[in-house]
Structure formats: C-alpha cells, structure tokens
Design a protein around this nucleic acid. Structure first.
Length: 355
DNA sequence: GATACGTGGCT
DNA sequence: TAGCCAAGTAT
C-alpha cells in the first residue's frame, strides 16, 4: 500500500546501500563515514555541478583532471577563465563552468569554506534546489530532501504518482522529505540515487532485486515502467549555418575566435561560424566568410543540441589575412588545449582531415 | 510554468 | 534511426 512503511523503506535502503553502494571517485563509502571520515565539501560541490544532466561515466575523467590541477577551492578560484573553460570543454552546458568559477571565487573570497546549510548554498551561482540539498546532505548530513531525476523516478514509482512532471515535483519533494532520516541523510540520498541508477532504471527496472519492492505501489500493480509520467517534449527544429576553417600556409595554424560570453556555447572558442538560422534563410555559402580566400567546401557536420538539430557546412581555405580580426591563430598541436566544444572539434576535424 | 542550455550512450 | 535519457540551473 503506497505510503505505508516509510521507516521500513528508509532502513531497507540504508542497509542495501551499505552492501551495494557504488564506488565513485568523489564518494566517501558508508563504512568510511561510519568511521568518522567526511567528504571534502569542495569535491562534493565540484562533482555535483559536473553531474548536472551528465552521466557518471562522462564526469569521471573531468573530475580527476580538475581535482588534480586544482586540489582546493582557492586553486580553482585563482585559475584563468580560459584555462577552466578549456578543461571543461566537451562536458557541455558551459554556463556551468562559468558559474563554477564564479562560485569558487565567491567561496574563496570569503575564507574558502563552503556554507554549511542548503539554504545558504542555494545563494551561490550554479547551485539550485538539487545541488544545494545534495551538498548539504552529503557533506554535512543535513536532513534535507534531495530530489534529482533518479529520485523523481523512484518516488513516483513507490507512490504511483501519476501527475506528470514537472508539476509533480512538489509532491515528490514532500514524499522524499518524509522518507529522509534525521541521521545518515547523505547516505540515504545517495542510496536513492544509486537505486535509481542501477535497479529502478528508466527502462526495464530490475524490481526483483529491489530492497523496497514490497513497499512499492507500481511494483505491486505491475506498472513500474509507466512512471514517472512526463509531459511530451516538442520536436526539435532544424537549423543551418556555416563554419570557416582557415589554415595559415606558413605554419598550419588555424584561425579561432571567442564566442560571446553568454548564449549557446558562451565564452567558448570556435572557428568563425555564421549565425545558426532556421532552414528557410540559413547562410551556408562562403559569401558569409570572415575574410576573402579560396574557400573549398569540406563537408557538412550534423550536431544535435537540447532543443534543435544543426547542420553546419564546413569551409576550408589555406589562407592568411592582413586584416585585423577579432581572434587568433592557433597552432594545430595545441588545439586540444583550447576551449573548443565538441561541435567545433567536429568542424575542425573535418576541415583538417588529410584527403 | 516554459524555455534555453551540450553531449554521449542506449534502444 | 530517432528519440530518450543522465546527480539541473537561470531567466
């Protein structure tokens, strides 16, 4: 019966977590915690920001890189913007990296200690409802309701919540708060997330292995895969544009520039591109090139963003320019150190491929 | 509440 | 393949 046995759900999950917690680079294992070992709030914060809408597998190498280069929040705060954007390149949602730096500098400027409550963490840039609660629970054991996508799924199944997301969030948060224990709140939040990631998965959940299946409304009804109910997303429109990869004849350096500080790929590097227009009026030809050259079409790059599909026509030229341009020439062996998003790396790879 | 904002893996 | 999904936040 949904809603019954809250204490049992909580204790079953904690016991399950003691045995089955995933080992993750940023995590303090439950037995360590019992022995009095507490995670470093800086590492918890960094991992949580990286994990926003991003898979564990993708985050691991970035987390290792960041914590090696910048072991403490003061180190990160002192880093140059371009250096951090380059280190973040490929991870996506680049506003996170800009907010990460702003947050590191704010924390560093006020002594270097992260605020110890969810309410005050929430005031920092890039830290919203989820991340503030996660840091407070994991780093300080504050008994606050942590609600991420995993937990939305687990809770909506446990209680058969059929109101579609995101409208169901308030109800889900309330249920999560009721399950959250006064002690081990951090382990409980991580237990719920691990359950969602490994057992209570979006498709083909492994209910037979679930430690709380006999308290689950959806399991008893045989409808686990019907939850959570989500509002349907609108189709992605198509956009088109062009990218121009100029290679300097003397040394093969490539012309790059920096994108505007906000908006798509804000603050990241690129070979010059046109605006990305709707298909009707997209400029894809070399008339939109940043300077005169013998531009040859290298091919097309297809890339899908969260809310649209993009096809860029990639142009290549061996050319120099005497014009003063807002950008720089970058040696090819050092391209991987630049803040180039995946889309731009695709364009460069296509244009610079040996025929 | 709705929309903008990346990328890669899986089915 | 095209669509869905992943430890969301800012506006």
């Amino acid at each position: 019966m949904p809603g019954a046995g809250a204490n049992k759900v909580t204790s079953n999950l904690l016991t399950w977590y003691d045995r089955h917690a995933r080992t993750l680079p940023w995590r303090t294992a439950p037995d360590q915690r019992r022995a009095g070992v507490w995670p470093d709030a800086y590492r918890v914060w960094l991992s949580e920001v990286m994990l926003q809408q991003t898979t564990v597998a993708a985050v691991k190498k970035y987390f290792e890189d960041f914590t090696t280069r910048w072991p403490k929040v003061h180190d990160l705060a002192a880093a140059r913007d371009e250096e951090v954007m380059a280190a973040w390149a490929g991870l996506g949602y680049y506003a996170r990296a800009r907010n990460l730096l702003a947050c590191a500098r704010a924390v560093s400027a006020t002594g270097g200690a992260f605020p110890a409550s969810a309410a005050r963490l929430r005031d920092l840039p890039g830290i919203g409802d989820y991340t503030s609660a996660a840091i407070a629970a994991i780093a300080y054991d504050e008994p606050v309701a942590v609600v991420d996508g995993n937990i939305e799924r687990v809770i909506s199944r446990l209680f058969c919540i059929d109101r579609p997301l995101p409208a169901a969030r308030a109800e889900i948060r309330q249920k999560m708060q009721a399950l959250t224990p006064q002690t081990r709140a951090g382990d409980f939040a991580q237990a719920m997330m691990d359950l969602g990631a490994t057992i209570c998965t979006p498709r083909r959940p492994v209910c037979a292995l679930c430690p709380v299946n006999d308290h689950c409304g959806a399991y008893s009804a045989g409808t686990a895969e019907d939850f959570p109910v989500k509002k349907k997303k609108p189709a992605k429109p198509e956009r088109v544009g062009a990218a121009f990869v100029a290679e300097r004849p003397s040394d093969g350096a490539v012309f790059l520039r920096q994108r505007p500080p906000s908006g798509m790929l804000g603050g990241m590097a690129e070979p010059p591109t046109t605006a990305w227009s709707a298909r009707q009026d997209g400029a894809t030809g070399d008339e939109a090139a940043p300077f005169e050259a013998s531009w040859r079409e290298a091919g097309k790059v297809r890339h899908t963003f969260t809310h649209f599909h993009l096809t860029l026509t990639v142009w290549h030229a061996r050319a120099n320019t005497n014009q003063t341009l807002d950008g720089w020439w970058q040696a090819q062996p050092t391209l991987d150190q630049q803040a180039l998003p995946t889309l731009m790396r695709k364009c460069l790879a296509l244009a610079l491929a040996k025929p």
